[in-house]
Design a binder for these strands. Structure first.
Length: 677
DNA sequence: GAGCTCTGAATTTTT
DNA sequence: TTCAGAGCTC
C-alpha cells in the first residue's frame, strides 16, 4: 500500500484518476482519441499492483502483443520495487491468451495439447481442400472462393447471427449456396478436429465454450483478480462472452475503448459490445475521457467535424490545451507521382526543422496504395518501414519451410503434409494423398514415410524427405533454428527448381532462421509466428541501430493506437477512402468514415490529407489507362472549412473540393460441430 | 498422374 | 498483375 499519493497518480487529470483508482467491479472507460487511454490503463495496472494485487493475477488483453509489452514496460517503471511486473502480468492478445490457456486446459476442452494453429491462409487452403473433395468447385464456377467461404464461416461463428442472416446481409450473392456452405463448414470443422487443427476463430470458440461450464469457468477465472481489456470497441460477441464467463466469481473488469474508432467489423467486431457494456455487466461505472493531449486544437477542429457525421456513438467533443499551430491541409495533386513528390518534399522540410523521420508517418487505406511512394522513396535513398499488407509469412517459400516444422510438430496436419509433399518432383495431389494415407495407417508416425512405395518418378525425393524426417526426429530437443538449418539443406535445391528468383528467397529463409534463434522450442516458435507475426519488413532486417531513422508507412488499421508529429493521409479519393469495396451499406460507409477519423487523429502537430486527381487503374494491362477521381466524400464543406485547401505543384491539377486441474472433459468439439447440424 | 500452358477473373482492412 | 482452373501432353 502506498501511504502518500505518488506523483504519477497526482499528475493525472480528474477523469483519468477516477478511472485509475476506481474500486472493484466493472468499469468502462470511454476514451476519445489521444485522451491518454494508454496512460490510464498503464496507471491502473500500476495502481492495482500498488494496492497489493499480485501481478500474475492480472490479465491485460490488448490488440497486439507489442501493445501489451509496451504497456507493461511503462507500468513497471511506475511501480517501484516491481521490476519483474512486466514479466509476471498475463499480457497479450485474446488469441495468444487463448492459446496459453488452451494448452493448460486442453484435456478439459477435449483437445490434444499438441494442436497446431492455422493462420488465415492455412485455413483458406484447408477449406479449399474440403471444397474440392465435396466437388463444390468444378460443378459451378460461381461457387464462392476459398477466401469468401472462410469470411462467411468466420462471421457466422463469431456471433454475427445465423448462417442465413450472415449470408443475406453480407454475402447476398452467395444465397443460392447456403446448403452447400453448411455442408462445407460441417466437414471443415470435423476435419480440423480430427487433425488437431485450430484456426483463429477456434482459439476463441474453445475458450468461450470452456468458460460456459460453471466449474471450469470458476477455475480459470479465479486465476485472475482483475481483467483489463484495451480497444474494447474492436471486440466481437464471442470475446464479450469469454469475458462474461471469466468473471463468475468476481466482476473486476476494466474495458477501455473508443466507439468512434471501431474499424474491425470485418472481424465481426461490434460497437454494440461497448454500447451494451452497462447491460452486460450490471453495476458498471462509466468514465469518459475528453481532454486530448495529443493534437493541436486546429487538428481537433477538423477531426471533430469528420466524426460528427457518425450516427450511433457515445457523444464526446475532444478539446486540447495545445493551441496554435497550422490548420490541416487538404492537398489536391495532379496524379500519383505528384502526390509522392509532395509527401517527400514535406517530409524532408519537416526533418530540416528537426522532426525526425520516425516522428512522421504516411497512412493509407490499403497496402498497395504506397507502392509508388515506396519506389520514389527508394530512388531518393530515404529509409522507410512499412506496416501492414503482405506479411513475411505469406510468401510461398516461407510457408514451405514452416510446413516442414509443422508436420514434425503435428503429424496429423494434412495441409502441411500436402504442402511439403507436393514440393517433391513427381509428387502431385494423388501421390501426396497416398503418402499421407500410408502414414496415417502407420499410426501417424512421420518416420513411416520411409516405407512408402512411391511411384518411380518420386522415389528419390521421397527418400530425401524420409531422411530429413529421420534427422529432425533426432533433433527434437534442439530448438527450431538448428532444425531450420537441416531443413534448408533439403529445401534449397527444391526451391531452386520450383520458384524463379531463388536468391532473395534464400535470403528470407536466412532471416527466418535468425528469427528462430530467439525461441527455445519449436512449438513456441510456430505459435508465435502465427499469433504475432513480424509486422514490418524492417523487423526482419535485424536489430536496427539506435540512431537509425526511417519514415513510417502504414495501413490505417496497423496505425491504430499510435501517434506521430506529422501525418500524411494519402489517396483520400472516393473509391480509395471509402474503399469502393466497402460502400455497399450505410454501416460500411460509416466504418470507412471512422477509418478516416482514426488516420487523422494520429497527428500531433501537422496533418496533410492528399488526393491525386488523376487515378491510374493498376489492374489494366494498358499503361496510360486512367480516370479522374473525386475527393473523398468525407471531406464535406463543413470539414474543409477548417482546413487549408491547396493545390500541389503549379496548379495544373486544380479541382473542385466538395464541400490445469479437474479431470473434467467438456464436449466442446461436439458443440462446435452441432452448429452445422 | 504430373506438370505444363492458356484463359478468364478478381482485386481491403487482420488476430 | 496474380491466381485458379481447364485442358493438353508426356
Amino acid at each position: 500500500m502506498q501511504a502518500v499519493s505518488p506523483k504519477w497518480l497526482s499528475d493525472l487529470n480528474p477523469a483519468q484518476r477516477e478511472a485509475v483508482t476506481c474500486g472493484d467491479g466493472p468499469l468502462l472507460v470511454v476514451a476519445g482519441a489521444g485522451t491518454g487511454k494508454t496512460l490510464t490503463l498503464v496507471s491502473r495496472v500500476a495502481y492495482l499492483v500498488s494496492q497489493g494485487v499480485p501481478p500474475d493475477r492480472i490479465l491485460l488483453l490488448t490488440f497486439t502483443r507489442r501493445a501489451a509489452d509496451e504497456m507493461l514496460r511503462r507500468a513497471a517503471s511506475l511501480v517501484s520495487g516491481e521490476p519483474s511486473l512486466a514479466k509476471r502480468v498475463w499480457g497479450g492478445t485474446f488469441h495468444a491468451t487463448a492459446n496459453r490457456l488452451l494448452r493448460i486446459y486442453a484435456r478439459q476442452a477435449g483437445l490434444s495439447p499438441d494442436f497446431t494453429i492455422l493462420d488465415r491462409s492455412d485455413a483458406e487452403d484447408f477449406l479449399n481442400v474440403v471444397r474440392n473433395d465435396l466437388s463444390f468447385s468444378s460443378r459451378d464456377r460461381r461457387f464462392p472462393q476459398k477466401a469468401t467461404c472462410l469470411a462467411i464461416y468466420s462471421r457466422r461463428v463469431n456471433g454475427a447471427g445465423s448462417l442465413e442472416d450472415v449470408v443475406k446481409r453480407d454475402f447476398p450473392w452467395c444465397l443460392t449456396w447456403q446448403e452447400e456452405l453448411k455442408q462445407l463448414f460441417r466437414e471443415y470443422v470435423l476435419r480440423k478436429q480430427r487433425q488437431g487443427l485450430l484456426d483463429y476463430d477456434d482459439l476463441l470458440l474453445y475458450w468461450y465454450h470452456l468458460v460456459q461450464d460453471e466449474s471450469v469457468a470458476r477455475d480459470i477465472g479465479s486465476r485472475f483478480d482483475h481483467i483489463l481489456v484495451d480497444e474494447y470497441q474492436d471486440t466481437n460477441p464471442v470475446q464479450a462472452g469469454i469475458l462474461r464467463g471469466m468473471r463468475r466469481q468476481n466482476n473486476n473488469l476494466t474495458a477501455v475503448g473508443d466507439d468512434a474508432q471501431s474499424i474491425y467489423s470485418f472481424r465481426s467486431a461490434s460497437v454494440r459490445n461497448m454500447l451494451d457494456f452497462p447491460a452486460e455487466f450490471p453495476g458498471a461505472r462509466i468514465v469518459t475521457l475528453e481532454q486530448n493531449y495529443r493534437s493541436l486544437q486546429p487538428v481537433l477542429d477538423t477531426t471533430n467535424r469528420v466524426i460528427a457525421r457518425a450516427r450511433e456513438r457515445y457523444s464526446k467533443e475532444l478539446w486540447s490545451e495545445r493551441k496554435g499551430g497550422q490548420r490541416p491541409q487538404l492537398i489536391t495533386c495532379a496524379g500519383e507521382s505528384e502526390q509522392d513528390e509532395t509527401v517527400i518534399r514535406n517530409v524532408l522540410q519537416h526533418r530540416e526543422q528537426g522532426i525526425a523521420l520516425r516522428k512522421q508517418a504516411v497512412l493509407f487505406r490499403t497496402a498497395s496504395h504506397s507502392d509508388s511512394l515506396e519506389l520514389a522513396l527508394s530512388s531518393r535513398n530515404i529509409p522507410f518501414h512499412k506496416y501492414g499488407g503482405l506479411r513475411f509469412l505469406e510468401m510461398a517459400h516461407i510457408k514451405d519451410l514452416i510446413g516442414f516444422l509443422r508436420v514434425m510438430e503435428n503429424p496429423h496436419d494434412q495441409v502441411a503434409w500436402f504442402r511439403v509433399l507436393q514440393l517433391l518432383s513427381g509428387v502431385g495431389p494423388v501421390t501426396a494423398a497416398a503418402a499421407f494415407e500410408h502414414m496415417r495407417l502407420s499410426g501417424g508416425d512421420p518416420s513411416s514415410l520411409a516405407g512408402f512405395a512411391a511411384p518411380a518418378a518420386a522415389v528419390d525425393d521421397i527418400r530425401g524427405l524420409a531422411d530429413l524426417v529421420r534427422d529432425l526426429k533426432g533433433m527434437e530437443s534442439d530448438g527450431p533454428s538448428g532444425q531450420i538449418e537441416r531443413i534448408e539443406r533439403f529445401y534449397l535445391p527444391v526451391m531452386e527448381r520450383v520458384y524463379e528468383n531463388p536468391a532473395p528467397r534464400a535470403n528470407d529463409i536466412k532471416h527466418l532462421g535468425e528469427l528462430a534463434r530467439k525461441y527455445g522450442s519449436r512449438r513456441q516458435f510456430l505459435d508465435e509466428l502465427v499469433l504475432d507475426p513480424p509486422l514490418s519488413t524492417g523487423d526482419l532486417a535485424g536489430p536496427p541501430y539506435k540512431d537509425e531513422d526511417w519514415l513510417v508507412l502504414s495501413t490505417i488499421h496497423s496505425a491504430k493506437g499510435l501517434e506521430w508529429d506529422v501525418v500524411y493521409l494519402i489517396h483520400a479519393a472516393d473509391g480509395n477512402l471509402p474503399s469502393d469495396m466497402a460502400t455497399g451499406s450505410e454501416q460500411e460507409i460509416e466504418e470507412e468514415l471512422r477509418l478516416a477519423y482514426v488516420a487523422m487523429t494520429r497527428a500531433r502537430d501537422f496533418l496533410y490529407v492528399l488526393w491525386p486527381l488523376r487515378y491510374y487503374h493498376k489492374s489494366a494491362g494498358i499503361s496510360d489507362n486512367h480516370s479522374y477521381a473525386q475527393c473523398s466524400r468525407f471531406f464535406t464543406s463543413e470539414v474543409t472549412a477548417t482546413m487549408d485547401c491547396v493545390v500541389a505543384g503549379d496548379g495544373r491539377g486544380g479541382a473542385d473540393v466538395p464541400g490445469a486441474s479437474a479431470p473434467l472433459r467438456l464436449n466442446i468439439s461436439d458443440r462446435i460441430r452441432e452448429m452445422w447440424e
